[in-house]
Amino acid sequence: MSDVLVDIRQLTAGFRSQGRTLGIVRGVDLTIERGEVLGIIGESGSGKTVTGLALLRLLPENAEVQAERMVFDGQDLLTLDDDGFGALRGARLAMIFQDPVASFNPAKRIGWHLHTIFTRADEAKARSVATPWRERARAILHDVGITRAEETIDLFPHQLSGGMLQRVLIALILALEPDLIVADEPTTNLDKLVERQVLRLFRDLQRRLSAAIVFITHDMATAASLCDRIAVMYAGQIVEIGRTRDVFEAPSHPYTQGLVRTSLALARGEGGRLAEIAGELPNPSQLPPGCLFEPRCDKAFGRCRVERPEPFPGRHGRAVRCFLAEMEQEPS
């Protein structure tokens, strides 16, 4: 528990548009330990991507980000200027996007990208490596399962398929050896078979680098297969966080329960009807006064309509934003 890499308290983020600010992330508390894989699950509009981008200070100009605390490896991110943050991002933080193409310079060969990263990583770690870069590149491409590494070095990004590019991107990150990787739906656009292979690479990556990975996804099954801990986001808040097994075996928040039930029913091939969550995500400009999930919740009662629940702590770092969880735990 002592090895905390990232500590965030009360992160809020929103976008200014036409004179007002539209809130997307509403008070997220998050600690990420060194070497763990933390899954952030949520639907579009839940704030999962914005949380990831805010963490790496990658949000556009019109974004407003605030936090009580934002610490990375003992360094206060809130007081760090843009240059300092840029240096940090280039060496110790990395981001993987859903569309791997966007991460490459289309006019440069794969080899150039690897070479650039090698140089940067060596500078950051203040070391000099005697091995020629081509050899290092070949070795690292082999590591991510690219058998024709020698050819691949001389290809341009557009000559590779999406799955291959995502592999090369993982190779780049292996070369960079960052301490924290934020991956935003890295497998969503890939075919199932390729997705399976890329997920396997992520596990290798984490094992080899002992880096912390924040894996953002909308897919319960993907998160379950990869992550040590899971944070479920809804309408800009973490509604439930805990160890993957705990969350899947005994989901506590009604929203998590719905997601897990549907996901399990599909995975087990059950017939009949699926459990539905009625309604839609709330409009960020017309939030319900009480619990944000209350309008869709079939267990809501009077208090949920007037008061917004705070995260209620449980065992093994579990926290649930639901009055029911609080009531169940209190007697014991």
Binding site: E43, H218, M220, Y255, G258, L259, T262, L274, I277, R296
Partner: peptide, 8 residues
């Protein structure tokens, strides 16, 4: 579709 509406 988002997961929570897909089931429906």
């Amino acid at each position: 579709l988002d997961v929570s509406v897909r089931a429906g």
